[in-house]
């Protein structure tokens, strides 16, 4: 059902929402307690976005909502009706002309180049968070990158190379 403003939707009803996910418009029926993370992974088969802690503490579920990085695990999908979502699967497409011949976003190419991961579980979140950080435009120095990326944990401890990769892209943008 479509939502009428200010009229309650009963707890057993599903609500129709429209999201643009990685450039594709999707009309979806969701229960109001479905998080954006569960919607992406369980319903839309976009399993690149990872569930780590499911409590906003690890950053593995980081996606871009209208270009802004957020924790998908703490967002109810129904509240983002009308939004544009970008997941790791859509980063290459996001880069427009900037994507390399292999379809990677420059930040993805830099992660490969700098070996910025081991197990890879946190990597989709690290990548989306990096792109969000670049969109924000506040971090310039290495210390600032580290602080700005502190919401993304990496239990393998690939932090040094992650910062190297981001710094590389930042310097490329500045050139």
């Amino acid at each position: 059902m479509r939502l009428e403003s200010a009229s309650p939707v009963a707890a057993d009803a599903k609500i129709g929402i429209r999201l643009t996910i990685n450039g594709e418009v999707r009309d979806i029926q969701v229960a109001p307690w479905t998080t954006l993370l569960d919607l992406l992974r369980e319903r839309l088969d976009l399993t690149g976005t990872k569930k780590g802690c499911d409590h906003g503490q690890c950053g593995a579920c980081t996606v871009l909502v209208d270009g802004t990085r957020v924790n998908a695990c703490l967002i109810l999908a129904v509240m983002k009706d009308g939004a544009e979502i970008t997941t790791v699967e859509g980063l290459g497409g996001l880069a427009n002309g900037g994507a390399g011949s292999n379809g990677l976003h420059p930040i993805q190419a830099a992660f490969v180049e700098h070996d910025a991961f081991q197990c890879g579980y946190c990597t989709p979140g690290q990548l989306c968070s990096s792109v969000g950080m670049l969109n924000e435009g506040h971090a310039r120095t290495r210390d600032e990158i580290r602080e700005a990326m502190s919401g993304n944990l990496c239990r393998c401890g690939a932090y040094t190379n992650i910062v190297d990769a981001i710094e590389d892209v930042l310097q490329g943008e500045a050139r």
């Binding site: 939502l3 403003s5 200010a6 009229s7 309650p8 939707v9 009963a10 707890a11 057993d12 609500i15 109001p32 307690w33 129904v78």
Partner: peptide, 23 residues
């Protein structure tokens, strides 16, 4: 997560009113 009903308010008055009628 428990089941709940959902209201999308457009104004402060609507939000306050929706609060008053719910458990």
């Amino acid at each position: 997560m428990n089941r709940f009903d959902y209201v999308r308010a457009g104004t402060v008055a609507e939000a306050v009113q929706a609060y008053g009628t719910a458990d």
